[in-house]
Design a protein around this nucleic acid. Structure first.
Lengths: 182, 182
DNA sequence: GAAAAATAGTTTAAGATTAAAAGAACTCGT
DNA sequence: ACGAGTTCTTTTAATCTTAAACTATTTTTC
């Protein structure tokens, strides 16, 4: 991280990623990496949101929620859902409410534990989601597809390393859903 | 609850990134790359949000806005601000409102064009932001710092390629905010 | 068993976010 | 000047988001 050569001046950008150069030689490499990562992720996400809205009149959170349910045919607890989606409990409550409203998913209070509630896709929801998932997959392929397969793989692997770095720094379990008591 | 655990074989993950394998052999590489990218970005972003809140009782959007203003000592138009932040106009209106309220930035209607309004950091805002920026920079370095400098650089460059791929697919100007003269 | 602690979800209050429409001010051709 | 079109910003309506407080239920402890 020390002696990084005299930064190759980049071709002036003006978006969120531009001009990291305030800090002297203060973590510059990390900052510009983070900004670019963020910019690219936002770019892709924005495009997918836009297409979900235009094509299916839905939103990314709804899509994500349904994607989780599609993987759990027998239903899933709200808490587990919120953990997998990495959002708050209250957030899930609202999303589920609206999706139930639209008849795409169903809620059912558990008998064994009356605090808990299971949610799952309805038949209709499954059908609708199938369409959306195919389109979503195509879109992602379209957006990332310029990148040669090897580069994709290399990028994926490096991002894996980065993920480890972050997990190490936040000392959260590298990936487990249940961080198992320490 | 461990009852329905998907049985992580190999190094399988259980967060948002897990199990892409629905589609036949359908764009699997692109999907898993996108999911990992999204996961990593969210991971970092969540940590930064959390620390901004705990340490400075502020939010990421506010921080981002101030970061933009810090680069424009003479002030910047709201529209330009929203373009740089890659968010909607209305969004900026609200953010600016709250930051003005807190005395961190100031708004001033342009004399030349009374539709337009300039915003800039106040003296107080500049002071406060300096602290936050230093901490932010340290945090990012801490989170990404495990990664060797060369890997950071490689990742940064590959993300640049990815950015180009996305721009090509959305045929939006690769980066320009200001359509360069000539 | 009853009190205490833990767990699952919901509610609340505030903020962030967008798209679409409205409002206000400017430019320019005629 | 006039008005049409453009540009800059705010408003509106809806959704998404979170943290913190709260309710209801189960589990643990003594």
């Amino acid at each position: 991280m020390s002696s990084t050569r005299p930064v190759p001046r980049e071709h002036e950008h003006i978006d969120a990623e531009s001009k990291v150069g305030e800090s002297p030689q203060h973590h510059r490499a990390e900052l510009r990496l983070w900004l670019r990562l963020l910019t690219v992720a936002n770019l892709i996400e924005a495009e997918i949101r836009k297409r979900l809205r235009e094509t299916f009149d839905t939103t990314l959170p709804r899509f994500d929620l349904m994607a989780q349910l599609e993987r759990a045919p027998d239903g899933i607890l709200l808490g587990e859902l919120s953990r997998r989606m990495m959002v708050s409990n209250g957030n899930v409550t609202g999303l589920v409410e609206r999706l139930v409203q639209e008849g795409l998913i169903e809620r059912q209070v558990s008998e064994r534990d009356r605090r808990a509630a299971l949610v799952r896709l309805t038949e209709h929801g499954r059908t609708v989601f199938a369409d959306m998932a195919r389109a979503h997959s195509d879109w992602v392929a379209e957006l990332l597809g310029q990148l040669p397969a090897e580069e994709q793989k290399a990028l994926w692997q490096r991002l894996g390393d980065l993920k480890l770095s972050v997990h190490a720094a936040t000392r959260s379990a590298p990936d487990e859903t249940k961080p198992e008591k320490t």
